[in-house]
Amino acid sequence: MGYLILKRIAAAVPVVLVVATIVFFLLRLSPGDPAMVLAGDMASPQDVAEIRARLGLDRPLPVQYATWLGEMARGNFGVSILSKQPVLDLIRARLEPTFVLAFCAIVLTVLLAVPLGAIAAWYHNSWIDRVVMAMSVAGFSIPAFVIGYLLILGFSMSLDLFPSQGYVSPFDDPLAAARHLVLPSLTLAVVFMALIARVTRSSVLDVLGEDFVRTARAKGNVERRVLWRHALPNAAIPIITVIGVGVALLISGVVVTESVFNIPGVGLLTIDAILARDYPIVQGLILFFALVFVGVNLLIDIIYVVVDPRIRY
């Protein structure tokens, strides 16, 4: 296991480097100028030129790239062009809301979507199956911001059950945090749930036709036990794989959900930084996202081994 982890971390280094390099050049080659954003819309060309020089943006791209690589090698992610705060501090301050939101969405998904998918498979072609699949299609089809606004309209503005926006840390006030997280977590979880429910249904359906399920029934197991103890665990590998892949879906959903519910996470930071052409923050965030992907995939590989002892690396 230790060898697996080391191997994956080593493989991640070139991946992260390539991603960061592509982003570095894409950012510089795209229209827009952070010096212009910093100076404001009434600045003279001379003012902007002075700020560009001060920021080092007037130097040739290869020189900027080499400087940036050198700083990265020393662990210096730089400071925000606009606020002058260290990039690492800015990202660190935004991690908690995003992680808490994503964690709640994943927990909701696993608690609701996996059982729903399994039940749909069990009652294959019944009305229950059709309802679950219809919900799944709807979950895929309705954009997250529409779901978010509908939830706000219904549960916050009309019924006054939950706050309409904002974030409270669970470490400061767990109850207030829970109230603030219910609607955004649901919003974020809907697409994820739709995906996981479909995959679970399909995977369980495959397993239900296997010999060991027939054997379990022949041994006199009750149907509930056959489903939850025999079929579902054996259908887990594809579900876990999709959960891993779905983290990408989750990250794109986080950006929208954080905007709708005004949650100060990395999603909002990403949008702000891209719009302001705050290069150091965007680069830092892309590295962060790349590391998250690598980390999640590593975690999934480890879970494979735990769930299915037949798997060896």
């Binding site: 706050p163 309409s164 926006q165 904002g166 905007s259 709708v260 005004n262 909002l268």
Partner: peptide, 13 residues
């Protein structure tokens, strides 16, 4: 607020 409607909702509440 990244979205004006979110601030309007927040004021109403």
């Amino acid at each position: 607020f990244p979205d004006m409607q979110a601030s309007v909702n927040a004021l109403k509440k």
